[in-house]
Design a protein around this nucleic acid. Structure first.
Length: 462
RNA sequence: GGCCCGGUGGCAGAGUGGUUAUGCAGAGGACUGCAAAUCCUUGUACGUCGGUUCGAUUCCGGCCCGGGCCUCCA
């Protein structure tokens, strides 16, 4: 099967055909850097990281451009900096660094380009001028507004018409708007607020503008995939489409709109008052990042996901099984007559699962099949082939790239090694009482022992 | 109120018009000094009520439940 993606714009699964197979291009809405990311923010990160990996698999590593922006100008940032008594630059820098650390911890590769909104103010101003010139935007009281009725097919992405939106509007309409549905492209800044000089006075951009400007700058006015969470479909992506299509009427802008489903936590909407609000950093104190990643990938990306710590624990159990299988590789390599070459052939069922709109749960089932093959393998050749397949499949999902020993034991522990040596001695002397005593002692520390044919190994659990 | 999404076995979670998902947990067995791991076996699944059909968890409609969005605005 070839890659198919569910396209919000067409509301169906479409075969993916890039504009230029030599350069498949994807833009994903990144974070607004006013606070550390929570596990709900991590879902699109991980989902689109898998999509980027899959695209690189399909088109070649150098034939994909993945852009994920940093929004570092936003009223939430201004408010938070004021609350913290912190400079805006300090807040955005710190938050960006934390974001990078969290993304890496959950196994996400860096995007090819990570543009910052504040580095693209000039492009945004040009875009606004273009929209004003084409009579899709107008200036009013220091603001520039996009005039929604100037775009006949506005609302196609989110499937709503203008009358419905006005009927359902909960917010009072600003008096300077020509039409209630018009939205802000540029707004004035007070002296204390961050601002840039513009033809309309000192001000700052509206929320939706940066993505139109930055995607055009780094991917061109037409590109392939635009991604983000479902909560961005309206108004953010709808308005991006309005800005970009009206400014560049001969261009398609994004052709495939891909949106991940919403995340709940412990059965409820995530909220600090409920106690189910987990930042990625907090979770990393308790769990390996890879377990978080697998927990997120165990649901298909469009499905609502109920995140839970129990779910992460289960994901860690699954990873134990995979790493146990991968651990057999070293034994095979250590064999004197064993082959030294490892082939990394991704099982076809894993690829086809991902090609079917990123069916990660089915792909993970394929990982279990691959692990079964490892355990069933008898010769060193078979083990190397099977572990190579498992590891290659894992890499496509951004999993299983650690050395098994590191996964289970971290940096190791001389005291544990000493106790194990003592226990081996006790066992060969048939002093099972002492051997069990040592094992109980280690169990109390969260260390699980395994007496295998190749000796005794251990792992941390807990 | 409008628009949209989802309800699968103890739990998580795929999929399908008639045939085994998969994993985690549980039970029994093999193996083990005992364990752990691994292997084998095992358990009532498809919200509800109708309809279409030879046959629906899978298609259609109603209902119930859960969730999301409904613009920048002080």
């Amino acid at each position: 099967m070839t890659l198919h993606l569910h396209n919000t714009y067409t509301r169906q699964k479409d075969p993916f055909e890039p504009i230029d197979a030599a350069n498949a291009r994807m833009y994903v809405c990144g974070p607004t850097v006013y606070d550390d990311i929570h596990i709900g923010n991590a879902r699109p990160l991980v989902v689109f990281d898998v999509l980027a990996r899959l695209l690189r698999h399909e088109y070649g590593n150098d034939h994909v451009t993945y852009v994920r922006n940093i929004t570092d100008v936003d009223d939430k940032i201004i408010e938070r900096a004021a609350e913290n008594g912190e400079e805006i630059d300090a807040l955005t820098l710190r938050t960006t660094e934390n974001f990078h650390a969290a993304a890496a911890a959950v196994g996400c590769m860096a995007p090819d380009v990570e543009p910052r909104a504040t580095d693209h103010i000039a492009q945004m101003i040009v875009l606004i001028e273009d929209l004003i010139g084409k009579e899709h935007a107008y200036e009013a009281e220091g603001h520039v507004l996009f005039h929604v009725p100037s775009m006949p097919d506005y609302g196609k992405l989110s499937g709503r018409n203008r009358d419905e939106m006005i009927a359902g509007a909960r917010v009072d309409v600003a008096p300077y708007k020509r039409d209630p549905s018009d939205f802000v492209l540029w707004k004035p800044s007070s002296d204390e607020q961050p601002g840039w000089d513009s033809p309309w006075g000192r001000g700052r951009p509206g929320w939706h503008l940066e993505c139109s400007a930055m995607s055009a700058e780094h991917l061109g006015r037409s590109f392939d995939i635009h991604g983000g969470g479902v909560d961005l479909v309206f108004p953010h992506h709808e308005n991006e489409i309005a800005q970009s299509r009206c400014a560049h009427p001969d261009e398609s802008f994004a052709r495939y709109w891909v949106h991940n489903g919403y995340l709940m936590s412990e059965g409820e909407k995530m909220a600090k008052s409920v106690g189910n609000f987990y930042t990625v950093t907090d979770l990393l104190d308790e769990f390996p990042g890879e377990a978080l990643r697998l927990a997120l990938l165990k649901s298909q990306y469009r499905q609502p996901l109920d995140f839970s710590k129990d779910g992460v624990r289960e994901a860690r159990q699954e990873l134990n099984r995979f790493y146990r299988a991968l651990g057999l590789r070293q034994d095979a390599l250590d064999g004197e007559e064993g082959p030294k070459d490892i082939s990394y052939v991704i099982p076809a069922d894993v690829v086809s699962a991902l090609e079917d709109d990123l069916n990660t749960p089915l792909a993970i089932a394929g990982l279990h099949v691959a692990a079964d093959a490892v355990f069933a393998a008898e010769t060193p050749e078979e083990i190397l082939r099977a572990t190579g397949a498992l590891k290659a499949a894992g890499r496509l999902l951004g999993l299983l790239q650690m050395e098994p020993e590191i996964w289970f034991q971290g940096d190791g522990d001389a005291a544990i090694d000493a106790l194990i040596a003592e226990r081996i001695a006790a066992r060969s002397a048939k002093d099972f009482a002492r051997a069990d005593e040592i094992r109980d002692e280690l169990t109390a520390q969260g260390i699980v022992l395994e007496d295998g044919a190749g000796g005794t190994t251990w792992r941390r659990e807990g």
